[in-house]
Design a protein around this nucleic acid. Structure first.
Length: 326
DNA sequence: AAAAACTGCAACCGCCAGATA
DNA sequence: CTATCTGGCGGTTGCAGTTTT
């Protein structure tokens, strides 16, 4: 097995890069582009190995890098991709523009992993910890955290057993200092068929370059088989006008919010309605058709000119990372 | 105020696979 | 065919900053 020649050379600098070194490397790459990394240190006047230069460029100096915290969408995507791909950080990073494998790996190890463990989910398998004695308790804990819009139907209950351990519990701890948003996002969600659907759509052997598209397709498609016949007759709904005054009501199938539940997707026709979802008052504008994505905490709006579903007390479009227009 | 513990992250290490001599 | 070089990847380490004791 051949060794990197750069690794055996002596007197090469190691450790953190100085601003001067960064400048040299940046200047060189900007002028000559990325080519043979082993020759870069020599030509750029750096006492580093080519490998180190490559890493510095990829992880730090590259101009297309995205800085800052991971968004909720990125976090969700990482979780889902990790569920399918495992620790294939490079493949995961390929689906997150501007993010590096190293960055995602660090984020996973320092943050996401702990979140899952805290939720009782094995970060390696993305399944609930397999202590059978705990399953029932966790199940009850899970469903009790769901809103009244997600009743534990017999079908859902059965599905839970079939897919025991495959529940997707999303997290939202990256949401900061916003009670409305926290409440809105912190509810656990249930989509037992998501993983099977997602996994069945990818190449089980190798990297699938269309992964992101499939991810979106899986999340946004509505043609999944019905999981449950969702009876809304007893679904408690709280109506409120935009000024915040409330009146309690009960959503029925004859109301102007029409819903159907299919494997985590709740299709809805909104006709200028205000209602409550997962404990948060939500307002819709007239003529809005959307899908409630349980596992993504999102309402997908099909025919609106703008973001037009939003938590009460906020302005339309304010939660652009929560609500997306298709 | 100081030491210890914790955390995030940049960078390194070792391995692998493909290219090339 | 074999040895070597190189780029790429995932796992791990170690440092610097922050928080806790």
């Amino acid at each position: 097995m051949g060794r990197h020649s750069c690794c055996v050379k002596q007197k090469l600098r190691k450790g953190l890069w100085s601003p001067e070194e960064d400048e040299k490397l940046l200047k060189y790459i900007t002028r000559f582009g990325v080519g043979c990394w082993s020759s870069v240190p020599k030509h750029a006047g750096l006492q580093r190995c080519g490998k180190s230069c490559r890493l510095r460029w990829i992880n730090y100096l590259r101009p297309d890098l995205k800085r800052g915290l991971f968004s909720q969408q990125e976090e969700d995507l990482i979780l889902h991709l990790h569920q399918v791909l495992g620790n294939r950080w490079a493949q995961i990073a390929a689906q997150l523009p501007g993010r590096t494998d190293n960055e995602i790996k660090n984020y996973w190890n320092s943050c996401l992993k702990k979140k899952l463990i805290k939720q009782g989910i094995d970060p390696n398998t993305h399944k609930l910890v397999s202590d059978n004695n705990d399953v029932k308790d966790k199940k009850m804990e899970f469903f009790s955290s769901c809103s009244s819009s997600m009743p534990m139907t017999a079908e859902l209950d059965q599905s839970y057993h079939i897919n025991n351990g495959g529940l997707i519990l999303s997290s939202s701890s990256s949401m900061e200092n916003n009670p409305i948003r926290d409440t809105f996002l912190s509810k656990s969600v249930c989509d037992p068929l998501f993983l099977a659907e997602f996994q069945s759509s990818i190449d089980p052997i190798g990297y699938n370059s269309n992964l992101l598209a499939q991810y979106h397709q899986t999340n946004y498609e509505t043609s999944l088989p019905n999981l449950a016949s969702f009876d809304h007759r007893n679904t408690s709904t709280e109506f409120s006008d935009h000024s915040g005054s409330k009146m309690s009501s009960s959503t029925t199938n004859s109301s102007n919010i029409n819903t159907s539940l299919s494997a985590g997707f709740q299709n809805m026709t909104f006709e200028g309605e205000m209602f409550q979802f997962n404990g948060v008052n939500v307002k819709t504008e007239e003529g809005c058709v959307g899908q409630w994505q349980h596992h993504m905490h999102e309402v997908q709006v099909n025919n609106a000119s703008d973001f037009n579903i939003y938590p009460m007390g906020t302005m339309p479009g304010e939660y652009t990372d929560v609500f997306h227009q298709i």
